[in-house]
Amino acid sequence: MDITRRRLLALLPAAAVAWEFVRAGTPELSPNYKTSDHWWGMLIDITECIGCGSCVRACAQENDVPEGYYRTWIERYHVTDYAIERPHVESPNGGKDGFPLDQDPSGKNFFVPKLCNHCADSPCTQVCPVGATFVSPDGVVLVDKNYCLGCRYCVQACPYGCRFINPKTNTADKCTLCYHRITKGLTTACAEVCPTGARQLADLKNPKDPIHEYLRTHSVQILKPHMATGAKVFYNGMDGSVR
């Protein structure tokens, strides 16, 4: 399709203006975006995940995640009859290349996508000695890479293994819930490319967000609830063997 930038603008004035704004990378948040109006989380439906790895690839491309480190990853669980406490888990290359080889088809097999749980009472921000990582007013755990010391205490404190030290910046790195997208009205890269809709961005402060109805009608869990982290990534259909 031959379409010029001008034609694009002519075709879709509103969308194009929005797009211009998104592309501009304006340092300010979207003018209509108020941090106090949002409280972000995510919904993951394990029953829908097909382990294609699209989210892992998209995340790496969207956020320039270095090879061998993961802001999001997929685990494949294999649980035989009574071994709920001892599942066999694997995550080759974080599931970035999918899971090409089939596993033992006996027992129970399923995929679990993981990412930062954007905890409300996050242990990682608690331990940061200088205030280089924090829960933003809209509930996203962010890292200030221009202020981080690289002491790695936060990496130790995260019960979910979601943090790493970025070898390019030598600072702590993690999922930002695509903060640069969600503040401009887009969804996260992982949710954008999820073919089955297993990942949904959720705004817990927005009364119109379908998350509320979903949470009301489904049995959802969070990871490691005994850690009391206030995790905001909700899992539907999660097996008890998941950790």
Binding site: V130, G131, Y147, L149, G150, C151
Partner: peptide, 21 residues
């Protein structure tokens, strides 16, 4: 061992009270 040794002074300038470190 710090990723950014030059920023270590931040520990004195803006110490985070909830951090054991």
């Amino acid at each position: 061992h710090l990723g950014h040794p030059e920023r270590s002074l931040e520990m004195y300038l803006t110490p985070h009270r909830s951090s054991a470190m």
